[in-house]
Computed example of a mutant assay.
Amino acid sequence: MATIDRQSATLALAHALSAAERGLPVIPLSRSKLPALPSPHRNGTHPVLCRGECGLPGHGVHDATTDPATVRALFAAAPWATGYGIACGRAPHHLIGIDLDTKPPGTDATAALQLLALRHLFTIPETVVVITPSGGHHIWLAGPPDAVVPNSASRLAPGIDIRGAGGYLVGPGSLSGRGVYRLAPGTAHLGPAPCPRTLLDLLTPPPRPHHSHHSHRPVDHHGQGLVRFVLAAHEGQRNTRLFWAACRAYENGIGEQLTSALASAAVRTGLTPHEAHATIASAARMSAAR
């Protein structure tokens, strides 16, 4: 088993270096598809608003780099890594990922995207497509430098998740607990195609109006909706849904009160307590930075 793990780590590093050469910032991932390096602030009692300013690795997508020496150093610090993540929203490609999932049963994200395309008159261009171990697809698109595409889960349609600024895509060649991520036939020679303007408008909704804390809905009512949103997550959505819900909780001033309930809901969907609390802490840091 140790030999197989070393082979997987070696392949993951090779794929990551190849992606970095093409201008795609990368980080090492574990089999769980989460960043392989733990946070250097994980033992603190309060969330630390650090996105790598401390100079230490372990800040998730904020560690992503195209520098080959730094990529090698990150993987050397995480010899258990079997995959790599590609940071979205970063120059030069400003990558946008459209994640077409296959769960829960009955979900047809591909058909939902086709319906959106017909309704809003856009066409998905020929571009990089990655096939996930569960049979889903990651469509890679390039965004303009002045557009900030947020991450979202099933906002456009059920089963369509968006990876934007602050998110990452599992790179082709990565090995997860479910299998290997592979490039779709005929797309290996392609780069991320520009995102159609109409689709980009759908992915960048106007900013929500600011409300004072006095105008928020009651904590119990609002918080229970976020908890139910997390509980409804299926495999492939769990971390993204938890992060989205935690961000909304902190934006509405109820993050600390809702941490325990959100973490418990995430654990019920299959995340470990450590993964759940790490994701909530990341949401707290991002919300504070904003």
Rank of each mutant, 00 (worst) to 15 (best):
A193P: 06
R248D: 15
A246K: 02
L169C: 10
N239C: 09
V148H: 14
A245D: 01
L183E: 13
V227K: 15
S154V: 03
S212L: 05
P205Q: 01
C247E: 11
N252G: 06
G173D: 00
R217H: 14
R248I: 12
I254Q: 06
G173K: 02
H189K: 10
R178W: 11
R182N: 14
I254L: 08
H138V: 08
E251K: 13
V130F: 10
G167C: 07
L200A: 04
G159N: 01
D161P: 04
D220I: 11
V230F: 04
R241D: 03
H213L: 15
D146L: 07
T259S: 03
G135L: 09
Q257W: 07
S260M: 09
D146A: 06
H138S: 14
T198S: 08
G255W: 01
V230W: 05
I162R: 02
C195G: 05
V180C: 13
A233D: 07
L242Y: 02
V219S: 11
G171Q: 07
L200K: 04
H211W: 07
I160F: 04
L202T: 07
A193V: 06
G167H: 06
V219Q: 12
S260K: 10
P218Y: 11
L258G: 00
L175A: 05
R178C: 08
T259N: 02
G177H: 08
V219L: 13
Q257S: 13
N151T: 02
A261D: 14
H137V: 09
R238T: 05
P133C: 09
H213Y: 07
G255P: 01
H221T: 14
A245I: 02
D201R: 08
L231H: 11
A157R: 03
T132D: 10
I160Y: 05
H213R: 13
A232P: 03
R155A: 12
R238C: 06
T259V: 03
H189L: 10
H189N: 09
L199F: 00
G159C: 00
I139Y: 10
P144W: 01
V227Q: 14
G191H: 12
V149A: 06
